[in-house]
C-alpha cells in the first residue's frame, strides 16, 4: 500500500506524559482520513509531529517516500504539507487579502514576489480561496478584527492557498455555524482527488461526511481503523469512545 505519509514507531513524550506512543500509521495518498479520539488521545500532537511543529521522541515519519523526521516545518510546508490550527492563527495587523497572499507566497513558484506588481498578481490569483470559504467581502478587513468563525475560515483559506498535497485540519468545524460547516465540507470535497486530507475532529457527523477512513486513537495508541460506518458499529470503539450515539452525530467525550 502506498502511503503519502508513513509513520513508524512514532513516540512523543512530554515529561512523564506520553502523548503519542509507538504509533504505526499510514495515510494513503488521495485519501480523506479522519483521526478521532477523546481529549488527550494525542490527535493534535500527531498533527504537530507530521507538520513539524514538534520533534518526535523516537520513531520516523516518511512523506512521499522521504524521511522528514528531522525536516524543519517551513521546509515541510514547502514540500506540500499544509495545516490549520485548533486556535485559528492569522497575521492580525494585515488585511485578509494579505494573509492569503503571504500564505501562498512560498508556494507560488514565482520569483520576485517582493515586487509590488508580482505581489499584486499573486494576491489576485488568491481571490478564489476567499470565495471558496465565503469571506470575499472581508478581503480588506484587518485579520485581527475578524470574528472567531471568520478567522477559522481565513485559516483554512490560508492552508488552501498553499496548494498542498497533504492538508492537515485540526478541528476545523469547531465554532463554525451550520453554514460555515457546509462551506467547509464543500471546500474539502472540491479539493483535487490527489490531495490527501487528514482531519482531526470531534463532530462525528462531520467526520462521516468527509472521511473515507477513520482512525481512532486512545492514549496515544491506535485503537481501530475503518470506514466511518465500521467505526460507528465497532463495539469496543462505541463503548469506549463514542458513548451514546443517540445524540445526533455528536461524539460524546469520555473523560
Amino acid at each position: 500500500m502506498t502511503g503519502v505519509i508513513e509513520i513508524s514507531g512514532l513516540t512523543r513524550a512530554f515529561g512523564a506524559t506520553v502523548a503519542v506512543s509507538d504509533l504505526d500509521l499510514t495515510f494513503a495518498a488521495g485519501g480523506r482520513h479522519a483521526v478521532i479520539g477523546p481529549n488527550g488521545a494525542g490527535k493534535t500532537t500527531l498533527l504537530n509531529l507530521i507538520a513539524g511543529e514538534l520533534r518526535p521522541t523516537s520513531g520516523r515519519i516518511r512523506y512521499d517516500g522521504r524521511d522528514v523526521t528531522r525536516t524543519a516545518r517551513a521546509k515541510r510546508s514547502r514540500l506540500g504539507i499544509a495545516r490549520t490550527f485548533q486556535q485559528p492563527t492569522v497575521w492580525s495587523s494585515l488585511s485578509v487579502a494579505d494573509n492569503i497572499a503571504l500564505a501562498a507566497w512560498p508556494h507560488a513558484g514565482t520569483r520576485g514576489t517582493w515586487r509590488r506588481r508580482r505581489y499584486r498578481a499573486l494576491s489576485e490569483s488568491c481571490e478564489r480561496h476567499l470565495e471558496t470559504v465565503g469571506i470575499t467581502d472581508l478581503a480588506d478587513r484587518p485579520a485581527g478584527a475578524l470574528a472567531h468563525g471568520e478567522r477559522r475560515m481565513l485559516d483554512i483559506a490560508m492552508a488552501l492557498a498553499a496548494d498542498p498535497r497533504v492538508l492537515l485540519l485540526d478541528e476545523p468545524a469547531a465554532g463554525l455555524t451550520e453554514q460555515g460547516v457546509a462551506r467547509l465540507l464543500a471546500a474539502v470535497r472540491a479539493l483535487p482527488a490527489e490531495v490527501t486530507v487528514v482531519v482531526v475532529e470531534h463532530d462525528f457527523a462531520f467526520v462521516s461526511a468527509v472521511a473515507d477512513t477513520v482512525t481512532v486513537l486512545h492514549d496515544g495508541k491506535l485503537l481501530a481503523t475503518g470506514t466511518p460506518a465500521e467505526i460507528a458499529a465497532d463495539a469496543s470503539v462505541r463503548t469506549a469512545y463514542l458513548g451514546d450515539l443517540g445524540e445526533p452525530g455528536v461524539v460524546e467525550e469520555v473523560r
Binding site: 517551513a74 499544509a82 490550527f85 497575521w91
Partner: peptide
C-alpha cells in the same frame, strides 16, 4: 512580528 510560528508553518 504578528505570528512567527504561523509564518514558518506557511513555509516562510
Amino acid at each position: 512580528r504578528d505570528h512567527e510560528a504561523r509564518m514558518r508553518s506557511a513555509g516562510h
